[in-house]
Every structure is written in C-alpha cells, then in structure tokens.
Design a protein around this nucleic acid. Structure first.
Lengths: 139, 139
DNA sequence: ATCCTACGATAGACAATGTCTAAGTCAAGT
DNA sequence: ACTTGACTTAGACATTGTCTATCGTAGGAT
C-alpha cells in the first residue's frame, strides 16, 4: 500500500477521490511521470478529473516535501514519489529512461568555499547522463 | 573579442549578421541567458532578427558543442557560452542568479558499478542550490 | 443523520516557451 | 556577377503550465 498516501493523510490533508487517485498513480520505485502522464493514468480511474487538479495536487505534494520535482530534459517536469530517501538520477539520452541512483560521497564537500560566492547552499542535484543497455544494443 | 565567434568561424559556418549578433550577445563569463533574453538583446543590434533564427542558432551552437544548454528551473532553458571549460552551476532559489563553479573531485567516480544499471555514462551535471548573499541580506 | 461552510475541483481561457512551414534572401564558390 | 543551397523570416502551431470564476463536497457542528 502507498506510503505516500499514508504520509499525506497524516498532514491534515482533506482527502478527496482526486487526491487519492493522484497519489496512487504516482506510487512506486523509479517512477518519474510528467504531469500529463499522471493525468492520463488518473483519468482511467476517475474519468472526470481535470488537468488543473492534477497540477495543483502535484504542486502541493512538492510543497509538502512528499514528492520531488525533476527537470531532466528541459521539457515537462517529472514527479518522483521517492522523496523520503535522498537520491540522484541517471538518464538515458536516447530513450529518456530514468533510474534512481545513490552515489557515494557528498558532492557538497567538493565545492570549496572560494567557489561558493557567499551563497548559503541547501541542496545539490546530480544528474548522470548516458545510454541505457536497451538503447546501446539497438545502436 | 569573442572566443566563441572565433571558434564558430573555424567550423565551416556560413557567417551571417544574425549569427554574429547571437554569438556576440552570448559572449562572457557567468552568462546564462534564456533564448528570449538573447533575442531581446539581439534585436537592439539587428532589429529585424527573428525569434526562429535565435532558436535555430542557439540549437546549432549547442550541437556543435560550443554552447551548453542549462535547465536549472524547469522554465526556459538557458545558454552558457562557457562550454570549453567543464564546470557546474550554483543557483539562487530566490532570485535565480547563476554562477559557474568548479567543484573538486570527480562525481562520476562516486557512482558504483552496482548503481549504473548497465548504462554507459558520458556526462555528469551538478546543480548546487541555495540563497545568494544579496537575497540573504533582504530576507 | 443532516446542514454549513470553507476548501477543493472543474472547464476553459490564457500565458510562456519552443517548433515547424512556406516563401523570400543572401553568402560564398565559380 | 551569377547561381545555388543554406539561411532567415513571419506567423501558425504545439506543448506545458497557470489562472479565474463557478460549482461541488469533505468533514465538523448540530
């Protein structure tokens, strides 16, 4: 059952059919759907759900820190329900497949003070780019 | 004078007034303009230049590897002429300011084989997020 | 159980960014 | 100076995301 839904429930969220469906559709590992993909899947369970509601709901989940927003390609943002465990992303440049990965080490430690320009740094995002095995074999 | 323009010249590029203006507008350090910002600046020098040409020209420069495309915010892509020297980006979450930074170490080495899922990795992008000194003082 | 009310959902207009097409223009080799 | 294919243009179109006015409903109060 959806961890995501459980966590949202415990936050005073008014539970509606729409929010439940969005949370259910988004649940899982290595899930990185665009807002429109979420909407398409939600519609199969709740035909009258609107695009605006999907956008609103995803935005609220991001604000609550329960979902990560990922912009790997400059196109549509993707939504990653795996926000409770820090991770980075590995992206196939040909087919767009995305995997969650867990690098060793702390990239923040690699940025010397002289390269911080006085910024207070709160987060580091790492995106690995390459070609996935499937795409490599059909080169 | 523009290194960028020099490098483009040596690649069999047909040199037009439009391309020259785009390359000149984009030149410099810590430059990260959106396509529309490039267009706005180009228009002041060459009033009849079209949006399509700016998009085309930027796209070609990216393909040639002379300009980096940066998607730091899920909004408009930004274009960084500093492609000849590898670097990463530091972004202010409040005002959107972007600085080029040079972390020590190799982030690729931090990704164990077991976390590569058979991908052939060709590139790593790191984005540091935080608050710049100016925004911090007007908190 | 029913009623209220504020919060959520809806449709569709609008906005921002990017892509494509058809026709005109021009850089550069001959 | 020609010629030609690459370049440019205006504007339509596509995609992604946001906003507004109105309607519906979850959940507490009675």
């Amino acid at each position: 059952m959806s961890d995501l839904l459980e966590r949202l429930r415990g936050r005073g969220w008014r539970m509606t059919a729409q929010r439940r469906v969005v949370a259910e559709v988004l649940d899982g590992d290595h899930v990185h759907l665009t807002a429109d993909e979420v909407h398409a899947r939600a519609v199969t369970r709740l035909p009258e759900i609107s695009r605006a509601t999907v956008y609103n709901t995803l935005g609220e989940m991001v604000t609550l820190g329960e979902v990560m927003e990922v912009a790997t390609d400059g196109r549509a943002k993707r939504y990653d329900p795996n926000a409770h465990r820090p991770h980075q992303h590995l992206v196939c440049g040909r087919c767009g497949a995305i995997r969650d990965v867990h690098p060793a080490g702390d990239p923040l430690a690699d940025l010397p003070a002289s390269e911080r320009f006085g910024f207070t740094i709160s987060d580091v995002e790492v995106t690995y780019r390459g070609i996935c095995p499937g795409c490599a074999s059909t080169a």
